[in-house]
Amino acid sequence: MAGYIARRLLQAIPVLLGTTFLIYFMVFAMPGDPVVALFGDKTPPPQVLEAVRERYNLDQPFIVQYLLFLAGIFQGDFGVSFSGQPVSEILAVTFPVTLQLAILAVLIEMVFGITIGLVSGLRKGGIFDASFLVVSLILISLPVFVVAFVAQFVFGIQLGWFRTTVGPGAPIQDLILPAIVLATISFAQIVRLTRASVIDTGGQDFVRTAASKGLSRRRIVPVHILRNSLIPVVTYLAVDFGVLMVGATVTEGIFNVPGVGRTLYQAIIRGEGPTVVSFVTVMVLIYLVINLLVDLLYAVLDPRIRYAK
């Protein structure tokens, strides 16, 4: 176990260095003046250009620039937004909101996804299974912004059940609709993953043994089948987090949820390049940490991972 954790932590180091280097490289190794390019068709005041140049140490050789940038990240310095506010300060305000939204979305997709996947898997080929296969295909095909707009139009404008914009200081029930929208992205994947895994586990020897011992279906399904089927679903959480971050950017933007995603969304829309770079860096770092945590959790859940070489 300790060996696995150590190996996994060691593996994370080159990936961490690589991703930050890649982001930095994409932005500052481009031909032309990268600082001007970052602002698109806008002409920022010379003070802002100067501040960005200073921030990224653009008078230094490239590799020194990158190392200084990396050193800043490790000290919690993610740069300054377009309006001059430190990114870490913005994060302190916006991150809890996004975390609430993400937890709500994951809860919704997990509870509904696993339940429906379990029922589909147990009654493979039935009407319920067949209809949810079609529904999940359609859900996979819908881009998140389409779901968000349709939900906003139907439930917010036509039915008036939810408020269409959330805004700062809103109560948590206002987050329900954005959370449902966010949950639809991965809901279908979780249904299919659970279904496939339940079918797989249902055919294993230990399930047959349990049945021949005379255990009731009521005990076999949750204890023998479901628990062993959840391992791939938990691993999917790691992948899901990347999907959630992109989804949160769009969903928070559309529903005006004052989280990290909306800050990035507005920075993108307004063409504020340096803010975009800072926030993408932060998101990638969060993604890496979550992936690491899920991998460690995976080892706790599945002994085969722990002992494999």
Partner: peptide, 25 residues
Amino acid sequence: SRLGDIFFSIPYILAAVVIMSVLSQ
């Protein structure tokens, strides 16, 4: 494989957002 891990760790839409903000012209 490590190179793939690095590219895999940046959600590709976020990466494309960064590239396209730089290449907006």
